[in-house]
Design a protein around this nucleic acid. Structure first.
Lengths: 249, 249
DNA sequence: GCAGTAGCGCGTATGGCATACGCAGAGAGT
DNA sequence: ACTCTCTGCGTATGCCATACGCGCTACTGC
């Protein structure tokens, strides 16, 4: 069975990404590397979106046949996992002098930047907790920011999941919806405004008083942009975490 | 063009879901309804997952040909939007006497319950802000919980997005990863534990000190279950919102 | 009552997709 | 030199969404 080895339970290609797995010097030399395959797939996704990534497209980009790829990757979702890992890249180092909150804010912003650079990454389906090299490295960096707090280890992990989930979700909303809006020929800036217009047509004050009230203030039209939405959410969450930390001391 | 009408910019089938669109008594009586199609699709998704929902499968479930469905829905993603809307269902009424926080907590828990009933719904790709009847009704209810706070309308919407995004993301993690784990033949309870085992094999104390420290406490093994994770995250976020509300008064 | 016409169901066809299977040749270890 | 494993890949299967156009239905205006 090519899907397991060394008892990690991980797919073979993911083990290869961790640098386990030596070449058994038997048959012909491989003409490809996992890295080249992943790079080609990432290039396609960056150019034409995740939907354009097909095994045959990746293969033809590399000048090989479709089925050759299956010598390196046992299924397409392994390739997707590796693409996501490549999208994250190694986490930024992090400055040791900083308090947990500003360090963690940097971490979250850096993660968001990674998604901004590779918007397709938010659409990779997640079927397992983080287990690729860069994912775990990001997790390590995030936990390191929380090291000096009085949170329990379990709480640190919960906070990490909470914030990374927020960043991912926020990135998805932002980059995905804006991209879809652009695809429909509208300018990305007009997304909120045309949503408001739509809701005005669909809702009436009797059945939707709260929505109507929100629409009346016109604040849909001046949302301040997606970046403000990100900052707002992150600040709220970190305020909540800070409250927990304070309650502990 | 069948994709637009009445200037809402909405797909025809979504307008139909809003109850706009009268039948122009011209041609033969339709043999199907949008509702029956959506119900069939939901049934398939509930039984075999979202991936099992194909136009031909839905059609054969209804005893009609594949292409008949396209008289009611102009593309598969419209069907998916309608399925998602059906998964939410109408929001619970909400008790008027409650303060914002407990009302909003109820709202979030109810939303999570809706996802728990239809785990496939978290995998419906989002390409637009909420614009189906039940989505907007849930939004109305959520905003109503925040009515008596001193937040601006824009902030209320931001808070709503923050919390609904959290619920969706948390549901995805929980139900999706557990389902994948179950599919691999493992018991859902062992998911966290086997992740910990995996990380122990992949990380060393030199390169991953924080992860190693977290693993050493053994808190991975006793995570308290996904429900605790949900409650923890929600409490943190609401603490943050509460801090904002207090700062305003 | 009758023609026109819009809406309906559906058969057929196109062009994608992931991937199972097995073959031919490479090349290291014996 | 022989064997055995690993390589690349051609072929084939069975999915998928959906464009197009035909024959039919049943209501509207005459």
């Amino acid at each position: 069975m090519a899907t397991e080895e060394s008892g990690t339970g991980l797919p073979a290609s993911i083990e290869a990404a961790w640098g386990l797995r030596e070449r058994p010097g038997k048959g012909p030399r491989p003409g490809l590397t996992l890295g080249r395959i992943v790079d080609a797939a990432v290039g396609i996704a960056s150019a034409d979106g995740l939907g354009a990534v097909s095994m045959s497209r990746v293969a033809s980009e590399l000048g090989v046949s479709t089925m050759s790829l299956y010598r390196y990757v046992s299924a397409k979702d392994e390739l997707l996992m590796l693409m996501e890992d490549a999208a994250y890249g190694p986490p930024p180092p992090g400055e040791p002098g900083k308090d947990w909150r500003s360090g963690f804010t940097d971490w979250a912003r850096a993660l968001r930047t990674a998604y901004a650079r590779h918007p397709w990454a938010v659409n990779v389906p997640i079927s397992a907790p983080p287990s690729t090299p860069n994912s775990v490295a990001w997790m390590e960096r995030g936990l390191a920011c929380l090291r000096r707090t009085n949170l329990s280890e379990g709480e640190k992990i919960s906070v990490l999941m909470l914030v990374s989930g927020f960043v991912r979700n926020e990135a998805r909303m932002t980059f995905d919806i804006l991209a879809a809006h652009r695809r429909k020929g509208q300018s990305p800036e007009s997304a909120m405004a045309s949503w408001a217009k739509l809701l005005e047509k669909l809702t009436d004050a009797e059945h939707f008083p709260a929505v109507t009230a929100a629409l009346r203030t016109g604040e849909f039209e001046t949302p301040g942009g997606p970046d403000d939405e990100f900052v707002f959410g992150l600040e709220r969450i970190l305020d909540g975490v800070e409250a927990l930390i304070s309650a502990r001391s």
